[in-house]
């Protein structure tokens, strides 16, 4: 846990976190668009996007966990809870949604590694669209929180 890490290290981790979020958003949205047909066309991208989405989520999760205690003390407790309470609530929604996205990302990764019938195609589309919407929400929420105050 990086509570008292140098500011440059925290900034570096935060920027890496944002870059991973951008990669996750790109992969999730592209994948949702790719599987919008009833039975998606088999292609290399059908396996690539879920892998990138899952790997970038894991990176996001690790980086976010590392800087979270610092955020809790120096951003939320010292500023957001005093001046912008709704922003800290928005962050809490975002962090919990990030946990709930994991089953969807893992499911879509597993489903693209087997032959798809109509039923698994429906599940895959649901996972892809819900996770893309959640990742987009988290991306915007994260930018908004950071625009108020960051580590």
């Amino acid at each position: 846990m990086l509570v008292d890490a140098p500011r440059w290290a925290l900034k570096l981790l935060l920027i890496s976190h944002v870059i991973a979020a951008g990669v996750s958003l790109g992969a999730s949205v592209h994948f949702a668009l790719l599987v919008r047909r009833a039975v998606p066309v088999q292609s290399r991208l059908l396996r690539l996007y879920p892998t990138v989405a899952l790997a970038s989520w894991a990176t996001l999760f690790a980086l976010g966990s590392a800087i979270y205690p610092n955020y809790r003390l120096q951003v939320r407790a010292e500023y957001l809870d005093l001046h912008a309470r709704w922003v800290s609530t928005l962050f809490d929604v975002k962090e919990n949604l990030a946990v709930l996205i994991a089953p969807l990302l893992l499911a879509q990764w597993l489903l693209t590694r087997r032959s798809l019938d109509a039923q698994s195609g429906r599940v895959l589309r649901a996972c892809a669209w819900v996770s893309a919407v959640c990742v987009a929400f988290n991306f915007v929420a994260g930018l908004l929180v950071t625009s108020y105050r960051s580590v």
């Binding site: 999760f61 979270y68 809790r72 962090e95 919990n96 946990v99 709930l100 994991a102 597993l110």
Partner: peptide
């Protein structure tokens, strides 16, 4: 005291996800 419970919630959820899968 400032206490963070998110780590444990995330940990149990992810452990359940992997074990269940």
């Amino acid at each position: 005291t400032i206490a963070m419970d998110w780590f444990s919630r995330a940990l149990w959820t992810l452990v359940a996800l992997v074990v269940g899968a």
